[in-house]
């Protein structure tokens, strides 16, 4: 077990190396002038671009440039993002908590609803509840998040004015950027509570409802399907029949016997799901004008703000790789049959 984890950890640098190399290759489509922005700390430096190009050898062979860039990267120097109007490292610190908060708020409902209804759907196969669950799953799978998001906005913002886009309203904006506000976690739901401001807390919560609802509906589908099919497989096995033959009540067989085994693929999936959420927020944040990593990345891509694109993408890829690792480890941990060497 320990060796398996170590082996996976040892692979990590290679994947990260590949990730940076791939991104760097893609960047070669751009002129040296555009790539120079990667090495700039302050917008004033942009006036002397030629000097930057010379200094970092942007007209030299690719592998030389790559080495220089990696060194910068290792020093946490990621350039200046025009769209965020701040250095990339600061932008990540600024935007990541928002994305993380949105992801966390959506993750728990997905997990609970997915497992609960996925299980029920398997137990009551082909009954009304199952049909309904499958309908929700297949529609969630087929509905693009930007369509759902815009529909929700049309209804709950345009018609009812209940849930506005953005991350907070004007009052909260003044409060959060005021002097007396203590920033503890960066997660505004927690911070407003810690500052004891109920009105701001409710305001922040109100802004989370629609993007979270969008994410939940879209991402729920996968979990529903996996839980259902995994549960169906277990329910058809001999040990379940044995348990039933012993005269155990059905609910007990489901909860104590089948569900525990059916959860194995679900547990592994859930760590992947968390990361898919982090990827899925790209569109959702854009639709709801929610100031997180995803919206920043998209804006950077639209305006060809290369440091911004690279910073947000590296962050996404890094998280993705870590989650894959976590999912593998979790898998080996949960399923005693899988003890990889």
């Amino acid at each position: 077990m320990g060796r398996f984890i170590l082996k996976r950890l040892a692979l990590l640098p290679f994947v990260l190396f590949g990730v940076t190399a791939l991104l760097f290759c893609v960047l070669q489509f751009l002129s040296p002038e555009m790539r120079a922005a990667l090495y700039v700390k302050d917008p004033r430096q942009l006036s002397s671009l030629e000097a930057v190009i010379d200094k970092y050898g942007l007209r030299k062979p690719v592998y030389v440039q790559y080495g220089v860039w990696l060194k910068q990267l290792a020093h946490g120097q990621l350039g200046y993002s025009e769209t965020a109007k701040m250095p990339v490292v600061d932008a990540i610190k600024e935007f990541f908590p928002a994305t993380f908060e949105l992801t966390c708020v959506s993750f728990l409902p997905i997990l609970l609803l997915g497992v609960y209804f996925g299980t029920l759907s398997a137990v009551y196969k082909d009954k009304l509840l199952d049909q309904l669950t499958r309908f929700i799953a297949i529609t969630g799978y087929s509905l693009p998040s930007f369509v759902l998001g815009l529909l929700l906005l049309m209804l709950f913002y345009g018609k009812f004015h209940w849930f506005p886009p953005g991350r907070y309203g004007l009052d909260t904006d003044l409060l959060v950027h005021g002097d007396s506000f203590r920033h503890v976690t960066g997660l505004l739901t927690l911070d407003t509570l810690l500052n004891g401001d109920w009105a701001a807390f409710l305001d922040v919560l109100k802004h989370l409802v629609l993007p979270a609802a969008t994410l939940i509906y879209i991402e729920l589908a996968l979990l529903l399907r996996i839980t259902r099919s995994s549960m169906l497989e277990e329910l058809g096995k001999d040990y379940v029949r044995t348990a039933k033959a012993k005269g155990l009540p059905g609910s007990m067989v489901v909860r104590k016997h089948a569900l525990r085994n059916a959860m194995i693929p679900v547990v592994t999936l859930s760590s992947l799901l968390f990361i898919m959420l982090l990827g899925g927020v790209v569109i959702t944040e854009t639709v709801f004008d929610f100031p997180g990593i995803g919206r920043w990345g998209v804006e950077a891509a639209q305006q060809l703000d290369i440091p911004g694109v690279l910073g947000s993408t590296l962050l996404a890829a890094g998280l993705f790789v870590l989650a894959n690792l976590a999912s593998d480890v979790l898998y080996a941990f949960v399923d005693p049959r899988i003890r990889l060497e």
Binding site: L22, G297, Q302, A316
Partner: peptide, 23 residues
């Protein structure tokens, strides 16, 4: 296979956005 590892290390929309924006 290490090549596929690298491409699969990105959420697909994110990598697609990067490729389109620079090309």
């Amino acid at each position: 296979m290490r090549g596929t590892d690298v491409v699969l290390a990105f959420p697909d929309l994110v990598l697609a956005v990067v490729i389109v924006s620079v090309t």
